[in-house]
Amino acid sequence: MSQTDDREMRTAIWRGLRCKCPNCGEGAMLRNYLKVRDHCDTCGEALHHHRADDGPPYLTLLVVGHIIGPAMLFYYTAYEPSPLAFMVIFMGAATVLSLWFLPRFKGMIVGVQWAARMHGFGHGDAAVD
Results as ranks from 00 to 15, higher is better:
32 N>T: 15
99 L>E: 08
34 L>R: 03
92 G>N: 07
43 C>V: 05
111 G>P: 03
23 N>T: 06
67 I>H: 06
77 T>W: 07
61 L>Q: 11
68 I>D: 01
110 V>D: 01
28 A>V: 01
97 L>W: 10
53 D>E: 12
64 V>G: 02
91 M>G: 15
24 C>Q: 07
61 L>V: 13
67 I>R: 06
64 V>S: 04
65 G>P: 01
41 D>M: 00
68 I>W: 09
63 V>Q: 04
38 D>G: 12
17 L>T: 05
82 S>C: 08
66 H>A: 00
105 F>K: 03
65 G>I: 07
81 P>I: 01
86 F>I: 05
32 N>Y: 07
90 F>G: 03
22 P>S: 10
111 G>Q: 00
110 V>S: 02
98 S>R: 00
75 Y>E: 09
48 H>M: 04
45 E>L: 11
92 G>L: 09
89 I>A: 15
26 E>I: 11
56 P>Y: 04
28 A>S: 13
42 T>C: 09
45 E>T: 14
98 S>T: 12
45 E>K: 08
22 P>Q: 11
78 A>E: 12
104 R>L: 03
66 H>S: 03
82 S>E: 14
101 F>A: 14
102 L>R: 03
55 G>T: 10
23 N>V: 03
101 F>P: 07
30 L>C: 10
94 A>F: 04
38 D>H: 14
45 E>W: 10
90 F>Y: 12
19 C>N: 12
25 G>L: 04
83 P>K: 14
80 E>I: 06
113 Q>A: 07
